[in-house]
Design a protein around this nucleic acid. Structure first.
Lengths: 171, 171
DNA sequence: TCATATATGTCAACATGACTGACGTAAAAT
DNA sequence: ATTTTACGTCAGTCATGTTGACATATATGA
C-alpha cells in the first residue's frame, strides 16, 4: 500500500492532520476552562466574568470599548457582568484623564486575588505543557497558533514580540 | 520600590510568557469559532450542533455515551441538539449490532455536506497556519497543546500517533 | 457656538446551550 | 429474576449571548 499518509513530509496537509489540529484546539480549550469554571461557580460567576477579570488585570486602565474589542461581544453582554463585578468590588472604574467619558477599569485588591486564584490552574497547565515540550516546541506552538489568529489581533502579539519589553505599566 | 515587573527579574518574563500562552488559546478559540457560528445561525443551529456534527462525522457509528464523553456535557444538553439534527435528517441513528440499546450515530449525506461546509473555514485556517509556520513548528505546536490536554484525552492522540489509522471506533 | 459624533450605560425582549433532578423504557448483565 | 446500563424526556433554572431603542455626558469639528 502506497500509503500517502505515512509519507515523511509532514507539510503534506492531509485531512487527518488538519482534523487533529482542529480537535487539539477544541480539547485544549475545553480542559482549559473546566477548572476555573468550577471555581467561578462558587462566586456565582461564569466564564464571562473570568474573561473580564483576566483582561482587566492584564491591561489595567483599559477602557470599556477596548475590552469589547478583545472580547468581541456586545456592550450589553459586557455591561451585565462588568457592572456586577464593579458592584461587588472586584473592579473599579475611574474617568479617563484625557477623555472623561471613558471609564478606565482596574482590578481592586479583591479582584487581583480572585484573578490569581482563577488563573493559577491555567498558568500551571501552560507551565507544565511548556516544560514538558521544551523551548523549541514552545516557539513552534506560538508560531502556529499565532497563524490561526485573525490579523488584527496577531499584531498585538507581534508588537509585544516573543518576549515582550519589560514595560512598567500596561499602557 | 523595586519594580518587580522590569527586566532584571526572570519571573516577570516567565509570567508574561505564561499569560501569552493563555491568551493565545483564548484568541485562537475565539477566531476559530466565529465564522462557523455565523454559518450555523443561518440553519438555526448553534455551536453545539457543530460539535455534534463534527464528532459524529469524525467517528461514524459513535454511541451517544461516547459522544457525551467527548463533549463533556450532560445527556440532556446533547439530547436537545442531537434530536434536532436527527429530526432534520443531518444524522441517522441505528441500533447497535451487539448491544441494541445503543444508538449508533452517523451523518447523512446532508450532514456530510453541512459538516464540510462548516469546517472548511477551520480547515483552511489550520492549513494556513501550518504552512506558514513550517513542519518543525507544527511538531512543537502538537507537543505543547497535547501537554495542555487532560491525560485521558491525550491518550486518544497518542494511541492514534501522529498519523493515525483511519479506524472507526466501534465503541 | 451649535451640531454631530463618541463612550458609555440601560431597558426590554429574546435565543441558545448549559445545568439538575426525576422518571421511563428497553436491553444487557449478573 | 433482579439489577444495571444506555438512552430518552420532561420541567425548571441559569448564564451568556443577541438586537434595538433610548439616555447622558463629553469631545470634536464646521
Amino acid at each position: 500500500m502506497t500509503d500517502v499518509k505515512s509519507g515523511a513530509n509532514p507539510l503534506f496537509l492531509r485531512d487527518e492532520e488538519l482534523r487533529q489540529g482542529m480537535e487539539l484546539v477544541f480539547y485544549a480549550y475545553r480542559d482549559f476552562t473546566a477548572e476555573p469554571d468550577a471555581m467561578l461557580a462558587e462566586y456565582g460567576f461564569g466564564r464571562a466574568h473570568h474573561r473580564v477579570i483576566y483582561f482587566v488585570g492584564r491591561n489595567p486602565g483599559i477602557t470599556v470599548s477596548d475590552l469589547l474589542d478583545i472580547l468581541q461581544i456586545t456592550k450589553q453582554s459586557l455591561s451585565r457582568v462588568l457592572s456586577q463585578l464593579v458592584r461587588e468590588e472586584f473592579i473599579t472604574q475611574r474617568p479617563g484623564t484625557h477623555d472623561r467619558r471613558q471609564r478606565l477599569l482596574e482590578l481592586t485588591d479583591k479582584g487581583v486575588t480572585l484573578e490569581k486564584q482563577l488563573s493559577q490552574n491555567q498558568r500551571d497547565r501552560i507551565a507544565r505543557a511548556y516544560r514538558a515540550a521544551g523551548a523549541e516546541a514552545v516557539e513552534g506552538y506560538r508560531k502556529v497558533i499565532l497563524g490561526m489568529i485573525n490579523d488584527n489581533d496577531r499584531e498585538k502579539f507581534r508588537k509585544r514580540g516573543n518576549f515582550p519589553p519589560p514595560k512598567k505599566t500596561g499602557r
